[in-house]
Simulated assay, not measured.
Amino acid sequence: MENLSQIINNIVLPQSQRTIGSEKALIAANETFSGSLNVVLQFGFPAQHLAQHLCEQISSATGKSVELDIHQNIVAHKVQAGVRTIQGVKNIIAVASGKGGVGKSTTTANLATALHKMGARVGVLDADLYGPSQPTMLGVAAHQPQQQNGHFIPVKNADGIQVMSIGFLIDPDQAVVWRGPMVSQALQQLLFQSEWDDVDYLFIDLPPGTGDIQLTLSQKIPVTGAVIVTTPQDIALIDARKAIDMFHKVNIDIVGVLENMSVHVCSNCGHHEAIFGADGGKALAEKLHVPLLGQLPLSLPVRVAMDEGKVGDLHTQNQAIAEIYQQAAFAVALAIADKGRDFSSRFPKIVVE
């Protein structure tokens, strides 16, 4: 019989061309007294959602019943030069659009929820200071962050996602009338003066455009990668190109493009219709040589869940939608895992006086 470890290492991970062997994930594979296999795997990305599939594949390949234990070791990856990582946060993912109204905040909330359900520790920073929506979408609009030793304690939603937003600190009916420097300072305070609790992935929901907040992000905040959200519509693609160009100029890697509202799914009959055009995000990703992370639907259940702050329930009750976001989130996690590791925290900070 072929070597047991080699059989397991040849098994392909779903939604990818990777194998257990290529990820160096096999920690142990031992036969028990009852004749079954006890297999221990460890990945550099969240992989709890793969457990059933991998268990079935290993059992089929070896002809034995399998007890599978999956662990993850998510580490900090490289950010732009000259910026140190933040205590309590391993990887920061900026979610940008260049244009408003393309579903960037909805995408952020759903990617965060999908990664959490895959086994990661996740946070969301609402950097859209003029129109904060994450507290509503994540179901924590009625909460207030506690303060401890001059720092905010991020609010946790029902799923355990850590959330910080200017929306917690201002009257929801009050307009934020601030100039650029004040907005940039507020963003830094929300990020650096929050006690993030061992976050594997922190999503930053950016406002539209390429202005002060985006410049602050590139100069002061350690960003592992950026996700660009667009619709297939030509007018949205124009602004998405500008956002991508901005990130290239400030040396922030583009994780990929997410095409949102790619099709409308009728809640009555299930009919799919590309009301904003077809494959615009896919064409943009191909032209700019960045990955297409997914094509997300325009769907009534998604809108209802966002308005009611029940994004976790959406993923639990609507399997088809959950799988779409799960695939997109997994693509993001794999892209981050492929980056080099960050070792800046191991070096002392040198001050010249």
Rank of each mutant, 00 (worst) to 15 (best):
N3M: 08
N9L: 03
S16E: 07
R18W: 06
G21I: 07
A28D: 15
T32E: 13
S36A: 14
L37S: 07
V40D: 15
H49L: 04
L50G: 02
Q52V: 13
L54Q: 08
E56L: 12
S59D: 10
L68F: 06
H71G: 06
V75L: 11
A76T: 10
A76L: 02
Q80Y: 04
G82N: 13
V83N: 07
I86G: 07
V89F: 07
N91I: 10
A94R: 01
K99M: 02
V102N: 06
S105Y: 03
A109P: 00
L111C: 04
A114G: 13
G119V: 01
A120W: 07
G123E: 02
V124D: 05
A127S: 10
A127V: 09
D128S: 04
L129P: 04
S133W: 02
S133I: 06
G139C: 09
G139V: 10
V140G: 03
A141T: 02
Q147M: 15
H151Q: 12
H151V: 00
I153Y: 02
V155K: 00
D159K: 06
M164D: 07
S165V: 01
G167F: 09
I170P: 08
I170E: 11
P172R: 04
P181D: 13
S184T: 15
A186S: 11
A186K: 00
A186H: 05
Q188S: 15
F192W: 14
W196Y: 12
D197Q: 15
D200V: 02
D200A: 01
Y201F: 15
I204M: 13
D205R: 11
D212F: 06
I213N: 04
Q214E: 15
I221V: 15
G225F: 04
Q233P: 14
Q233Y: 09
D234H: 11
I238E: 00
A240D: 11
I244R: 00
M246H: 01
V250S: 08
I254Y: 08
I254Q: 10
L258H: 02
E259A: 03
E259H: 02
M261Q: 07
V263W: 11
V265N: 01
V265G: 01
H271E: 15
H272I: 05
E273I: 02
D279E: 12
G280F: 04
K282R: 09
A283S: 08
A283Q: 13
E286G: 03
L288S: 00
P291L: 10
G294F: 00
G294Q: 08
P301V: 11
R303T: 12
A305T: 03
G309K: 03
G309H: 05
G312H: 00
L314T: 04
H315N: 05
H315L: 14
H315M: 13
T316P: 00
Q319M: 03
A320R: 08
A320H: 10
A322V: 05
E323K: 14
Q327I: 05
A329K: 07
A329D: 09
A337S: 14
G340D: 13
S344P: 07
F347G: 00
P348S: 10
K349F: 10
E353H: 13
